[in-house]
Write a protein that binds this DNA or RNA. Sequence first.
DNA 1: TTCGGTGACATTGTTGACAATATGAGGAGA
DNA 2: TCTCCTCATATTGTCAACAATGTCACCGAA
Lengths: 238, 238
Amino acid sequence: MTNMKIAGGTGDDGRPQETRCDRATAFILKEIIDGRIGPGARINEQDVAQRLDMSRGPVREAIRGLSARGLLSFEPNVGARVVLLDPKLIADLYEVRAELEGLAARNAAKWMTEEDRAALLDLLAQHDLQIEKEPLGPYPLSSFDHDFHTMILQGSKNRMVWRICGHDLRDLLILVRRQHSIRPGRGRDALQEHRQIAEAIVKGNSPLAELLMVQHIEASRESLLASLSVISTPQRRR
Amino acid sequence: MTNMKIAGGTGDDGRPQETRCDRATAFILKEIIDGRIGPGARINEQDVAQRLDMSRGPVREAIRGLSARGLLSFEPNVGARVVLLDPKLIADLYEVRAELEGLAARNAAKWMTEEDRAALLDLLAQHDLQIEKEPLGPYPLSSFDHDFHTMILQGSKNRMVWRICGHDLRDLLILVRRQHSIRPGRGRDALQEHRQIAEAIVKGNSPLAELLMVQHIEASRESLLASLSVISTPQRRR
DNA sequence: TTCGGTGACATTGTTGACAATATGAGGAGA
DNA sequence: TCTCCTCATATTGTCAACAATGTCACCGAA
């Protein structure tokens, strides 16, 4: 009945063939990030497969991939759970991130092209505009924050840093932020710090860029860890 | 015929249930590390499955996991290949490693227990003994080198650093070293550097430990990149 | 000879079924 | 009432078959 393939395939568009496993990966990731699953909760293969109208095979592959990336913790014959992020692990995560994004800022100051630098300043300007127009919007800065860090990560021209910070750690970060609501108010400070970092990078002052980035991330960590005292007990769905 | 399960299960020993996927993962990893597959070569699911006397399912899961870890590059409907490590990527890898292991050394100097420090010194002593007994053995130091870095990574008590450097980057490092034969002679210098790093850590001099570790890894990178000029062209098996 | 089409073959993508294991409710005994 | 055992159920592990796609040798025309 449901055996029919989705007519997918090469299709008309030039998509590079999205496989069912990719869909499952995206789905699970979204479920986690949107908080519909909760930390420590188990992923039910059957359930996911049914909801996506596919068999368990691709779902299992997706789970393996996410486990290898550290988003799920896997136990044979038991299943996969959303990874549990205790405060110590979160602190460790931020420490690594500070080190690596510091490296990225240092290298960005060295290797960014003129176009890169212009784009970075442009992003800041847009952010300013947004703040001015809507001083206390819900969290429009979240997207700007992400773009800012992405630009620097990419600008460092170090693919390894990009792979680690831009993909693996990023997902964990999002997970952390969803699990512990962000304290508002950081946005203002963060924007100011972003401006200083960008300035250092554009001027090619790599040691300063690194220092500011490290401090920026440490401040971000402090802000998070502060609101972490009211910790949500790890919940297991159902 | 081969449908019979291996009677596996909980068995007599208290093993935490090694699944077929784990075996496949270990097998592919070993094939890559031992150089039996070669960079850029494709992994044939059927072939692996037959050699391990299992079906393609677990093999596919293993491949997904290794792809997520960056050891294989995956293309839908085509298959997985051993990742191609160009010189720039290798340089990037070492840059990240220097940063992260520097962090590890810094923290190890702070957080290592007395037992940790004693074990570190003990390892060095054993290494000395080995060198004295067999001054120019093939590469007995490779194992010592690994243990040394592992101890420091663990000693830093930062699980994130351990996960990244101790697992993901380590595998890539091994891959690099197998693909480009290591220049001998580094062993002597490396041991000397190890001794200095250990001393700084044991004394709790964390800035010095970090500096020495960064330099140690940069020296290691230079040594490798030097022997990289005679680069082996990426080969595709069969 | 070289180029492009065409078909057979190899390989990957996906599925439904069955086996093995874990989980949890319910009952017997103390 | 509490503990431990038993068994039904849910869930994961694995398989073999089929569908879809990619690969490549072969062949004819320019």
